[in-house]
């Protein structure tokens, strides 16, 4: 699974990354993480409110920090 964290480096982005990493290890998924901080690239995903979570080239969440359980539910659906 290919996971991207989109964010310009604010505290919320770190929280999203932590929640996602916790969810990944909870579900024991094999996933690659990538942090996207370049504003141009973030915008090109169609994301205008950070942080955002991209899973396998699809934006699944943007504009807020979800709980670990919520991320786990999002990942488990795939």
């Amino acid at each position: 699974m290919d996971i991207k964290i989109l964010g310009t480096g604010c505290a919320n982005c770190d929280s999203l990354e932590k929640a996602t990493q916790a969810a990944v290890s909870e579900l024991a998924i094999d996933a690659q993480f990538e942090k996207v901080t370049d504003p141009g690239e973030i915008a090109s995903w169609g994301v205008m409110s950070t942080p955002a979570l991209v899973v396998d080239d699809e934006v699944v969440l943007s504009g807020r920090v979800p709980s670990q359980d919520e991320v786990a539910a999002l990942l488990a659906d795939r």
């Binding site: 964010g7 310009t8 604010c10 919320n12 504003p39 141009g40 973030i42 915008a43 169609g46 994301v47 205008m48 409110s49 950070t50 504009g63």
Partner: peptide, 9 residues
């Protein structure tokens, strides 16, 4: 913190 992506968008 979203000002930049919003501006570009």
């Amino acid at each position: 913190c979203s000002a930049v992506p919003a501006f570009i968008g």
